[in-house]
Design a protein around this nucleic acid. Structure first.
Length: 315
DNA sequence: AGACAGGAGCAGT
DNA sequence: ACTGCTCCTGTC
């Protein structure tokens, strides 16, 4: 008898870009190690590698059923059909051309909710650090390969609900600590049922999430898109706002949130969530540098105050 | 040095 | 409905 210590599996896929997908700001646990991507998914350590004609997965423990990762990676998505549903305009054509293989993930709703509460006004590396600290201090350990450092599951909602605000602040959450704590407690108290959101109308589910402290429109949409897979959830952050404004309404001085929302609802179709991800990744990887360059120039010399009346150009 | 970051919540208009 | 301020903390 032999004990099988690990398992592996390979999928043939025409278009799945692991690097783009795992670094596109929807998941925060992936680390690039020795040419592959490693994280904890559904409570198991897993390593993903990009192959010439698909991707390969390796687990640290025996695995006979791979549905958990197929579900997470949304391997069933019909990408040609999804891409075909995008609006046929110059920005989306550019986005599509430069983001081949970009995918949405379907993550655990609680982990998504907690991670995005932590994301408010933070950069990706900082969010990764927060998630790492939370897992390390409040999560259960997972089995990792012999040559890998220890790793932990994302903490359960019950565990975080019993943490103290101080403990959470020590995980670099700052003013978001009471938000995360309050949200965890709401769920534990039964004031919000995460599992039931799946069957609700998008707007209804969004409103339910926004009852949580620290969860506004943007974060609710992130959870609905990256955690639940609502096809038309459409998080609008500063980048998307800037992208929509510059790419679609270059001559308009200012776009009100309402006007932007109406445009989004009417323009991006049945898979607007996917369209959003493509647009987002496109502007961040192709135009971001250019845009931030402009900003630096515009800032100009430090002190030259002539009037404080400034017209809210805060980007 | 000081603004700002992949925002939310609040008060004030 | 819009504006402006604060909330931690690291970075440019």
């Amino acid at each position: 008898m032999s004990i099988k210590l690990a398992s592996e599996r390979e999928w043939v896929l025409a278009d799945f870009d692991l690097a783009a997908t795992l670094t596109s700001g929807q998941a925060f646990r992936w680390r690039f190690v020795d040419g592959g991507w490693e994280a904890v998914v559904a409570g198991r350590w897993v390593r993903l590698e990009q192959r010439p004609f698909g991707i390969r997965a390796v687990t640290s423990a025996f695995c006979a059923n791979w549905e958990w990762i197929e579900e997470y990676l949304r391997l069933g998505d019909d990408m040609p059909a999804i891409l075909a549903s995008f609006p046929d305009d110059p920005p989306m054509r550019s986005a599509q051309a430069s983001c081949r293989g970009l995918r949405l993930l379907r993550q655990d709703p609680w982990e998504s909710l907690a991670s995005f509460i932590a994301s408010s006004s933070k950069q990706i590396v900082q969010i990764q650090e927060i998630v790492r600290l939370l897992s390390e201090r409040f999560g259960e350990p997972v089995k990792v390969p012999p040559d890998r450092p220890p790793l932990w599951k994302f903490p359960t909602v019950e565990r975080l609900a019993t943490a103290t605000e101080i403990e959470l602040r020590n995980c670099k959450l700052g003013f978001r600590a009471p938000y995360l704590l309050g949200t965890a407690r709401r769920i534990v108290f039964g004031e919000l049922n995460l599992a039931s959101l799946r069957n609700l109308e998008l707007r209804v589910a969004r409103d339910a999430l926004m009852e949580c402290p620290g969860v506004g429109r943007k974060i609710a949409e992130c959870v609905l898109l990256f955690g639940y897979g609502f096809p038309t959830a459409f998080p609008v952050d500063v980048w998307i706002r800037k992208a929509l404004h510059r790419l679609y309404f270059p001559k308009v001085r200012r776009m009100s949130p309402q006007r932007l929302e109406r445009f989004v609802e009417s323009h991006f179709g049945t898979n607007s969530g996917y369209a959003q991800q493509y647009l987002f990744h496109y502007v961040r990887t192709q135009l971001g540098r250019q845009w931030s360059g402009e900003r630096r120039v515009r800032k100009g010399p430090p002190k030259r105050q002539q009037s404080k009346v400034g017209h809210g150009d805060k980007n």
